[in-house]
Write a protein that binds this DNA or RNA. Structure first.
Lengths: 351, 351
DNA sequence: GCTGCGTATGTAAACGCTTCCATGGATTAA
DNA sequence: TTAATCCATGGAAGCGTTTACATACGCAGC
């Protein structure tokens, strides 16, 4: 059915070897035959079979991407970054979201065997035991946002701790002393790091202020509940720092429902800089990590590791930047960013 | 380096055929040898090579997904739906975003050869000539959100027209007569369909009201500019219907900058129901299409087509639902949906 | 005890490609 | 003119599987 090298070879009256050489751009072919073969291949619509190629060469020109879930702006950003860098290098992306169990993730990794030249794994939950059990030594692997530090693998992580410290610093600068932190899931690496950063900064800046921590689970709803608890606190805190933006939003709604004004009555900050953060009222002060850049850099690293398998593992940390908007009160509400600080040129909304 | 069937066969003192039979769960193997081989395969950490398998069987258990871009909540939603359905069927996803040119898309499709059992292509720009030139007959293909109707391929499309009509109906119901439409890019299929729906509904409902159309390009910025133009109109329109939410937001900001209140002074509606729509003030009335469902159903269709290649092509249309919030004035602002109509259980924010 | 049959296992071809090695013709050097 | 060299091309092995076909074994029936 599908046309193969043999068909092209027969038509061109040469051997398959010569066709292969032409297809792969090897030099030692007469210009004459090369042209003839190319013409015939085009006419026959010949496209080499990647599976066979992989088998023969040992390369797939594909990387496997394992993400914890495929939900929300985060993943879309990361994937975009990865895709961008991958396409630049002629690499393809085999994508897999793992929903939950480690067993499933393990299965996904095994399924990658023979399909990929390298692995890109992101999981704030993945521990080193898991990797130990599942990483085949012959497949270069890069970890993204993982608790595992680069002893055995390349790893990228976010400066959750630094970002949280910077935010606390900012809140203190704004004159807030009594700061409440809304935490995330206990087994989530991002969440614990952010909490640690909060404590560190507070210990350094306000040794006499014991920071209150209210539980949360990263969901908007948990933020709402946290907001209710915070409202009930006496004396009322000066500021709330939520471990992520979604909780900050929930909290914001809870406040507005009770007539508490942000930032006049209480300051509010989040973490992540999700797109919505800009649009709520007041716009949310938060911490941004460039996820697309994370994906991009991770892929570049992986590509290097594939090319040169023996490079020693390392860990890189991506900086987190403070995004100051109106919700903490230091600046007056500047209004939407239109057209003051430039509009996003995003025109891909309904595609 | 990597362990193959041969290694397992040698260790178990059987032929590779027997090992293969065990691995693939064929029945005709003694329970005794089966157990022994499984034990050895586990111990040796044998994982079959997918490339070789594909070559031998002709199946890759992978589908190629071609998207126009990987930006924003849309794609993340679609991919999530696809991934969900794919994992359920043991299929893998080879992902490719095509940035721009048809040539690049064509290249991407060719690169899929031998890697995938089927293709999932989304592009509101892809025309049938392109598909004609690039679709290999032996690869089942499903189109998502495309101008091409299912003559030669399976196709899914969104009910852009119906959604737009419903929105106009709603605006009229709210008492608005003088309605302005902000259009999208001219070569975008979604945009033209929405515009058509607008005209159709208006012609039916308000034969004497010629609807004004202001140009836009789906970007927030273009919405802002459209808002400026609309503000200058006399008499001032009753309502604005933007071809997508991003433009509606830009428009909203433009209004708020001029002190125009929504919905008191002017009603505003969008299309897409992007996550932000819920959070702006006032919350935006808009039209929702379940993108995850689109992805899911498209994958299911494709899986069917792969299993039974001769099924006749068809087209399915996904309904668009009106999402009524406060921006059109019919209902009082109900506040955030917390906890009245249930909080989203999204807790995946910072992963 | 021989035939026949079913079952467990082995042998080898095939999948489509790349690439090492061989071949032979042309070109160059002596 | 002959030998050495180079270069375009062909032959064939090999990549790791699956699977059609062959084989050998055990057991039932006569």
């Amino acid at each position: 059915m599908a046309v193969t090298v043999k068909d092209v070879a027969r038509e061109a009256q040469v051997s398959v070897a010569t066709v292969s050489r032409v297809i792969n751009g090897h030099s030692n072919v007469t210009e004459n035959t090369r042209a003839r073969i190319i013409e015939i291949a085009d006419r026959l619509r010949y496209v080499p079979d990647s599976a066979a190629r992989s088998l023969a060469t040992g390369f797939t020109h594909t990387v496997g991407v394992l993400l914890p879930d495929l939900h929300g702006e985060f993943f879309s950003e990361i994937i975009r970054g990865i895709d961008l860098a991958a396409r630049r290098r002629g690499l393809h992306l085999l994508l897999s979201g793992m929903h939950g169990s480690a067993g499933e993730a393990s299965l996904a990794i095994r399924a990658f065997k023979g399909r990929v030249d390298g692995l890109l794994i992101m999981s704030p939950y993945a521990d080193s035991a898991f990797l130990e059990a599942n990483s085949s030594d012959d497949t270069p692997t890069v970890l993204m946002n993982t608790p595992v530090r680069g002893k055995s693998h390349f790893a990228f992580c976010l400066d959750n701790r630094g970002g949280a410290r910077a935010m606390v610093q900012h809140l203190v600068n704004c004159g807030h002393r009594n700061i409440v932190f809304i935490g995330g899931p206990e087994d989530n690496f991002d969440a614990t790091e952010r909490l640690a950063g909060f404590h560190e900064a507070l210990a350094a800046l306000e040794p006499y202020s014991r920071g209150t921590v209210v539980p949360g689970d990263f969901s908007e709803e948990s933020g709402y509940r946290a907001g209710q608890r915070i409202t009930a606190l006496t004396p009322r805190p000066d500021a709330v720092f939520a471990a992520n933006d979604m909780m900050a939003l929930g909290c914001l709604f809870s406040f507005s429902k009770r007539g508490l004004r942000v930032p006049d009555d209480i300051a509010l900050a989040g973490f992540d800089d999700i797109p919505v953060a800009r649009f709520v009222s007041p716009p949310l002060t938060t911490v941004r990590v460039r996820m697309a850049e994370l994906g991009e850099r991770a892929l570049v690293r992986l590509a290097e590791a594939i090319a040169k398998p023996l490079a020693p593992p390392s860990t890189e940390t991506l900086p987190a930047e403070l995004v100051i908007r109106a919700s903490c009160g230091v600046r007056p509400y500047a209004g939407p960013r239109i057209p003051d600080d430039g509009m996003p040129t995003n025109s891909r909304d309904a595609d």
